[in-house]
Amino acid sequence: MLKLDNVSTFYGKIQALHHVSLEINRGEILTLIGANGAGKTTLMMTICGTPRAQSGHIVFDGRPIQQMKTSDIMRQGLAVVPEGRHIFSAMTVEENLLMGSFFRSRNEAAAQLDHVLTLFPRLKERFNQRGGTMSGGEQQMLAIGRALMSQPRLLLLDEPSLGLAPLVIQQIFEIIERLREEGVTIFLVEQNAHQALRIADRGYVLENGSIVMSGSGDALLNDDNVRKAYLGG
């Protein structure tokens, strides 16, 4: 579905990604793990076009997207939940969600709104609350819900568990699995390697801007090197 081929990204002179190649298949959960500063966020945002890949190819659904404008890429059927949520804090939950379906018709938006609210009953309870006054977990749900409002085929999630309590993380991961059942392909970047790999079909390990390992979720979970580096022994 999405294919990165030999992608390199630079911040000025600093190279953040070194010839990264990676493939996401339709209907799977793909997890990317790596230490702080490994370049996970960079990789995800390179797919979205900011920063732009300096070399290599990015193909989404058979269409090269590495030269497209970010705003155009984001309308191709992929959605991103950026690191740090970035919800609109002065807008209500409802308005936040509707911003997600900005390019959809009213009817589509209404249908998708119902769907998102059944996925996140919590958001329904808080429907008229301002985004900024919600708890961290609720904000994360809102961010995911907002991304889903555009009915994406591919959802990119950057550390959805950041700063959340274990129970809330559990809920979020359950929802991610449920999305897969509904046919949404998911690219998940996580620090929380254990849980992320457990639900993942496949995983990649990123180190200093290069992919150093890949395999099925279980294989990575049981790999000695991965255990040592990311799962605490």
Partner: peptide, 26 residues
């Protein structure tokens, strides 16, 4: 209109706007 909402969204968070496919320049 949507344009008004887009202005407001942009004032609040440019990164979010971009990630939703809105074009800040326009």
């Amino acid at each position: 209109m949507p344009l008004g909402r887009a202005w407001e969204a942009l004032r609040e968070d440019e990164i979010a706007c971009r990630s939703l496919g809105l074009n800040p320049t326009v």
